[in-house]
C-alpha cells in the first residue's frame, strides 16, 4: 500500500514536469499553429538561468586562509558573505527560488525575440519545415550553452531547509513508510500553481478570452478589429516563461547540463500528442497520466511481469492512443486528425 502511494506521488511529481513542458508546447501550437522543437532547449535555458544566478551570487574573492599556518593557503569567500554575513549566506542558499524571479523577464525576452525574429516567418510553412528550423535552433541554443558553461552537469542545490525528505506517513499515523523528498513535493505544488495560473489567465481575463476566441477562429476575431497576432506573440512569451520556470525548478532534481532539453523534448511531444494537439486540458491530463503510468511501470513487481516495460511504457501508450484515437484524449474533433 505505502509503495503504491509512494509511486503515485512520484508519478504526480514527474507528471507535473511533463505537464508544464507540454502545456507550453500546446499553447504555442494552439495559438500560432507552430510545432516547436526548440521547446526542450527553452526548458534547458530556464535551468541555466538558475545556474547563472547561482554563479553571480557566489562570485568570490580569494582570501588568505588564516587557519593554515604552515604555508600560504587561500580560500574563496563569496562577496555576498563578506558584505552581508549571514544574510548573504542565506541569499546564496536560496539561489534557486531567486532564479525564478530572474527567469521570468529573461525568458519573456527570449520568447519575444524568438517569435518575432524566427517563428513568425514560419506560420505558413509546412509542419516539417517548422520542426526542422526549430530543431536547428535547439542545436544552436544547446551549443551556445555548452560553449559558455561546459559539458558537465552543474549542481544547483535546493535551499537547505528543504534539502531532506518529508515523512508524509506521519499524517496517516504510519511513520516512516512514506518518505518523500521535499523538493519534489514543492515541484508538484509549483507545477499545479503555474498550470492553474495559466488556465485562470486564459479563463478569467479579457486578454485570455480574446486568445481563446482566436484559438477557435482566428479569422473572425481578426475581422472584429482585434490584433490577434500581437496577443499570440505574448502567449508565445508566456509559453516560454512556463518552460523556463519548469527548468529552473527542475535544477535541484537533476543537475542541469546542455542536453537535458533534448531528453525532455521527445517525452513532452509524446505527452502533447496523447493529450490531443492544441488541447490545453489534454496536455495537463496526459502529463500527469503518463507520469503516474511511468512510475507504476518502474515498480519491481510490474517489471518482473513484463520486463522492460518501464523503458517503453510512455511510447507504447502514445502508439496505442495514436492508433485508436488519433486526435488524442481530449483533442477536438477535426483538429489535426492526421
Amino acid at each position: 500500500m505505502d509503495a503504491i502511494v509512494l509511486q503515485f506521488l512520484d508519478g504526480l511529481a514527474k507528471g507535473g514536469n511533463y505537464a508544464l513542458i507540454a502545456l507550453g508546447l500546446t499553447l504555442i501550437f494552439g495559438t500560432l499553429g507552430v510545432v516547436n522543437f526548440a521547446h526542450g532547449a527553452l526548458f534547458m535555458l530556464g535551468a541555466f538561468c538558475a545556474v547563472t544566478v547561482q554563479k553571480l551570487l557566489t562570485l568570490s574573492e580569494r582570501v588568505k586562509d588564516e587557519s593554515i599556518t604552515f604555508f600560504d593557503a587561500y580560500k574563496e569567500i563569496p562577496y555576498l558573505e563578506t558584505w552581508f554575513g549571514d544574510t548573504g549566506h542565506m541569499l546564496i542558499d536560496y539561489s534557486v527560488p531567486i532564479s525564478l524571479l530572474a527567469a521570468i523577464p529573461v525568458m519573456l525576452l527570449i520568447g519575444l525575440a524568438m517569435e518575432r525574429g524566427l517563428i513568425r516567418f514560419f506560420y505558413h510553412r509546412s509542419h516539417a519545415e517548422q520542426i526542422l528550423v526549430t530543431f536547428g535552433l535547439a542545436i544552436v541554443l544547446q551549443e551556445l550553452v555548452k560553449a559558455q558553461f561546459g559539458a558537465n552537469p552543474i549542481p544547483t542545490p535546493a535551499p537547505e531547509v528543504v534539502a531532506g525528505s518529508l515523512d508524509i506517513g506521519v499524517w496517516f499515523n504510519v511513520e516512516g513508510s512514506i518518505v518523500y523528498p521535499y523538493w519534489r513535493l514543492i515541484y508538484l505544488a509549483f507545477s499545479t500553481v503555474v498550470i492553474s495560473a495559466v488556465f485562470a489567465f486564459l479563463q478569467f481575463t479579457t486578454f485570455g478570452m480574446v486568445v481563446r476566441a482566436g484559438m477557435q477562429d482566428r479569422e473572425t476575431v481578426g475581422l472584429l478589429g482585434i490584433n490577434v497576432q500581437r496577443r499570440f506573440t505574448i502567449v508565445f512569451g508566456i509559453a516560454v516563461i512556463v518552460a523556463g520556470l519548469a527548468g529552473v525548478m527542475y535544477t535541484p532534481i537533476q543537475s542541469p547540463d546542455y542536453h537535458m532539453g533534448m531528453d525532455f523534448l521527445v517525452l513532452s511531444f509524446v505527452v502533447v500528442v496523447v493529450g490531443g494537439m492544441g488541447s490545453l486540458p489534454g496536455a495537463v491530463l496526459a502529463g500527469f497520466l503518463l507520469g503516474v503510468l511511468q512510475s507504476f511501470a518502474s515498480m519491481n513487481e510490474v517489471k518482473s511481469i513484463i520486463p522492460g516495460i518501464d523503458q517503453v511504457i510512455i511510447y507504447l501508450v502514445a502508439v496505442i492512443v495514436l492508433q485508436v484515437r488519433p486526435r488524442g484524449l481530449l483533442g477536438r474533433k477535426g483538429v489535426m486528425e492526421g
Partner: peptide, 29 residues
C-alpha cells in the same frame, strides 16, 4: 503502424518506436 498517420503524427510515431528500440537496447535486451 506508423503510416496509418500522416504529418507530425507520423514523425512522433517513428520517434516513439526509435526511442523504444533505443531504451530496450540499453536495458532488457
Amino acid at each position: 503502424i506508423s503510416l496509418r498517420r500522416t504529418g507530425i503524427y507520423f514523425s512522433i510515431l517513428t520517434l516513439a518506436f526509435a526511442q523504444m528500440s533505443y531504451n530496450l537496447a540499453y536495458s532488457v535486451l
